[in-house]
Simulated scan of single mutants.
Amino acid sequence: MNARPSQAGGLREITREAVRERIAEQALILFDENGFEQTTIEDIVTAVGISSRSYFRYYASKEEAVIRDLVVGGAKLRDNVAQRLLEETPWQALHHGMRDGAEQIDARPEKWLRTMRVIYSAASLRARNLEKHLTWSALLTPLINEHLDGDPRFGDLPARTLVGRAFACLDAALASWTEANAAAPFRDAIDAAFAVRT
């Protein structure tokens, strides 16, 4: 019996995502073992068993295989924070929204340790990671701004500052957690970073 079109389309999407994940996982292993700059796309496709043409159907560059869609994760974080703002302060909502994201890291710490080692090893990846955070900040700042009072001369400065502080906490937690080789759960590192007071 033939699958209905909607079922077939869904299966194709599942298969496509499985291939994307396989490419990304193999690329990360090669980048971590041999160096990001030293590893070529030809090395990746040989390891996965696909053609270079197939690779570019899934990823536009080596960087994209490490740091994927810039908007999707940010939209999830924004929606999470928006829901939390119904009951939490802006700072609490940012903290807890980012802490929720820590669950996927703690579920697969080895994968995320490898990912962060690779990101920290290459300037192009660090730049791409910064671009991701700027994209996510642009999604969060208007939302946070709705819940803050500030000097109208400075527009959304308080919201930009608060969101910037939150991402500084996230980055510091990731760096420390990676350097410590995941000695503690990442969610604990996030909590410790957000708890710092001067």
Rank of each mutant, 00 (worst) to 15 (best):
T178D: 07
P185R: 07
L113A: 06
R12K: 15
H147S: 06
A123I: 09
A166F: 09
T89E: 07
G97S: 00
L94F: 11
Q7E: 15
E64G: 15
A82H: 01
P109W: 04
A183Y: 02
A183S: 14
E37Q: 10
A8V: 05
D100H: 05
M116G: 08
P5R: 15
L157Y: 12
T115G: 08
S61E: 06
A138K: 04
A180D: 14
R4V: 00
T46S: 11
G97F: 08
R99K: 14
C169E: 04
Q92D: 05
L140S: 00
E33G: 14
L125Y: 02
L170V: 15
E21V: 04
L94Q: 01
L140P: 00
A65M: 02
R114P: 04
G97I: 03
A122M: 04
D156H: 12
I67Q: 01
E146F: 08
N34R: 13
A82D: 01
A192Q: 06
M98Q: 06
W136A: 05
F167D: 02
G164T: 15
L70T: 03
V66P: 08
A172E: 11
E13M: 14
R22G: 01
A82Y: 02
F194I: 07
L143Q: 02
K132L: 14
T46L: 06
S54M: 14
E131K: 11
E21C: 05
A123Y: 01
W91H: 13
A193P: 03
D171W: 02
P185N: 10
A93Q: 00
E179S: 15
A8W: 03
F186R: 01
R99H: 06
S61F: 04
A183C: 10
L11R: 15
R153M: 13
